[in-house]
Amino acid sequence: MPAHVVLSDITKSYGSHTVIAETSIAVAEGQFVSILGPSGCGKSTMLSMIAGLDFPTTGTVSTGGRPVLGPGPDRGMVFQDHALLPWLTARGNIEFGLKSARPELDRAERTRVADRYLGQVGLAHAAHLRPSRLSGGMQQRVGIARAFAIDPEILLLDEPFGALDALTRRELQLQLLDIWEASRRTVLMVTHDVDEAILLSDRVLVMGHGPSATVIADIAVDAPRPRHGDGFDDTFDKQVAGLRHKLIELLGNN
């Protein structure tokens, strides 16, 4: 399977302070890859490089065989902070993103696409509400719907569930899996959560502590898909127990 996202010998420094030491990553088309590591190791910085919001000090970043020179419609991003426009409704926020990323759609088509993805995240009833009238979990659902609606080839998730309570977090993880299973876009997700990385991912890239952090392990998640259900059921939990232990050990010992 061809590499869809490639970071080749990248580093990131601010003056004399090196955040990311020389690091290379290749992600195949359609893979769901999590980047797991401690705070300050450069996980979000790498995601920003792929998004075209930041650039490596040395090395190159490419997507679809093309160098990343800035943001583009082939990449959609979901932040921990939903980043919704407060004066627009849930539907309006998605339509605004569509107007920029998919200018070929007319107004009626933008509304249809927005409503489709709001329905997929369980918010058809809230399309007319502004962010101030939505809970944190609902706001994040809108952010996920907006990212999928623009139909990017690559989806970048920067701790999208980090600010949510455990129950809402699991519900959104499973909704994300449902949408991803239907489309199989290439996904890179930054997370601190070992169980989240295991549940969602095909591969987990573990980063060491900073400064001068780099990827210290690239681990396949061999548990079968689809991974639906109410959290970790007994069978899935047994399948991944060894993997969970290994990831926790890597995070604690590096």
Rank of each mutant, 00 (worst) to 15 (best):
M1L: 04
H4G: 03
V6H: 04
L7V: 09
L7H: 13
D9W: 07
D9E: 15
K12T: 05
K12R: 13
K12L: 14
K12M: 03
G15W: 09
G15E: 02
T18A: 12
A21C: 06
I25M: 14
I25N: 05
I25T: 07
V27H: 11
E29A: 10
F32M: 10
S34F: 11
I35E: 05
L36R: 10
S39C: 05
S39Q: 09
S39P: 05
C41I: 05
G42V: 02
K43L: 12
K43S: 07
S44G: 06
I50E: 08
L53S: 01
T60K: 14
V61R: 14
G64F: 11
P67G: 02
V68G: 09
V68L: 13
P71L: 04
P71H: 09
D74Y: 08
M77N: 05
F79A: 01
Q80G: 11
D81P: 00
D81M: 09
H82V: 00
H82E: 05
H82I: 00
A83E: 09
L85F: 15
P86W: 06
R91S: 03
E95I: 03
K99P: 02
R102V: 12
R102P: 07
P103K: 13
R110L: 11
R110Y: 07
V113F: 06
A114D: 06
L118Q: 10
G119H: 02
H125T: 07
R130E: 03
R130K: 14
R130P: 07
L134I: 00
S135F: 06
G137P: 09
G137D: 10
G137I: 07
M138E: 14
Q140L: 01
G143D: 04
I144A: 03
R146A: 02
A147M: 10
F148M: 03
A149M: 08
P152W: 14
P152H: 13
E153G: 10
E153F: 04
I154V: 15
I154P: 05
P160F: 15
P160D: 12
F161T: 15
G162N: 02
L164R: 06
D165M: 06
A166D: 11
L167G: 00
E171I: 06
L172E: 02
L172N: 00
Q173D: 09
Q173R: 11
L177G: 10
D178F: 01
A182V: 02
R185E: 00
T186A: 14
V190K: 11
A197E: 04
L200T: 00
R203G: 08
R203K: 15
M207R: 04
H209Q: 07
H209P: 01
H209I: 04
G210W: 03
T214I: 03
I219M: 05
A220G: 11
A223R: 07
P224E: 12
R227M: 05
G229T: 10
G229A: 09
D230S: 10
D234G: 02
D234E: 14
F236Q: 03
F236R: 15
D237S: 14
D237E: 12
K238S: 15
K238W: 08
V240S: 08
A241R: 15
G242M: 10
G242E: 13
H245L: 12
H245S: 15
L247I: 10
E249Q: 13
E249M: 08
E249G: 07
L251Y: 12
N253R: 15
